[in-house]
Amino acid sequence: MRAFIPPPVLGVGFTYQQGLRDAMGPHWEALDFFELSPDVLCHERVVGGTRVLDYHPGLLADALRFTADRPVVVHGLGLSIGSASGWNEGYLRILDTLHARRPFLWHSEHLAFLLTTSPDGRPVHTGVPLPLPFTDEALDLVVPRAAAMGDRYGRPFLMENFTYYLPGLPADHGRDEVAFLNELTERSGCGLLLDLYNFHCNATNFGFDSYAALARLRLDRVVEIHVAGGAVHDGFLMDVHSREVPPPVWDLLDWVVPRAPHLSAIVYEVLEEAVPLVGVEAIARQLERARESWSRRAAARGDRGLRAAG
């Protein structure tokens, strides 16, 4: 068992997206912190047959400049922490670069895999994050990696629960998603980024009780919560970050917040491409609603949001 060290308390945040800088206007001022996704600040190039990730110097500089007055946390997609064939070493290098330029308070990744190999050994990109089975081997793979991610920068590392649509994922000892997350955080010392919309999608799509499942989750390891809205396709609730947060997810947030003693942040997620559909004013309302939940927690504990000077 590795010790879990709760990070500083932040408040309500939003993902920095360059295309939204002007559109969001004064609404940026209401945020306690920014979430940065390195993936959208990078480009790929091929060097000697190997794909290499580099930051767009201009995009990175703009992002760092814009977010300079507040704390940042990092949320990635490209690490592929669950790949048995090896995670994305190139992604680690861009995290190293970012942390050297702008130390983040914590970083997080999705519990999934994107990289594998073909049966004849060629590298394969799945094109969509795929879930891990709830097996001992999967835990033995991810636990040391999650621990290593926490050690690498001396900052907490959080694992995010993911939306999946594949039924009957293989499992050992009757383990389900909640049991897997619990064992992962207990053994690795990592925290949890509880994506309540993802949780709601899985509960809806697979017919389990969200509250009963959350009651079993190590809520004392929840550091950050994501809320979002999505769409329905072929009867499945989809994690596409394209809508306002639906009422059941706000209800889940209000239920979780007083039960997560180390909750440090709430983020409303929406894709830049979906902003014309959702509307900036609606985004602002989502942030205000998140702040209502946060304020109830903050009032109960006497917390103050951390806001770095200059």
Binding site: A84, S118, P119, V124, G127, V128, L130, E137
Partner: peptide, 16 residues
């Protein structure tokens, strides 16, 4: 039955 082979198979099915 290593995890790598399960992922290879799943990746191949999704791609196909």
């Amino acid at each position: 039955m290593p995890l790598a082979d399960l992922q290879r198979a799943l990746g191949a099915l999704v791609a196909a």
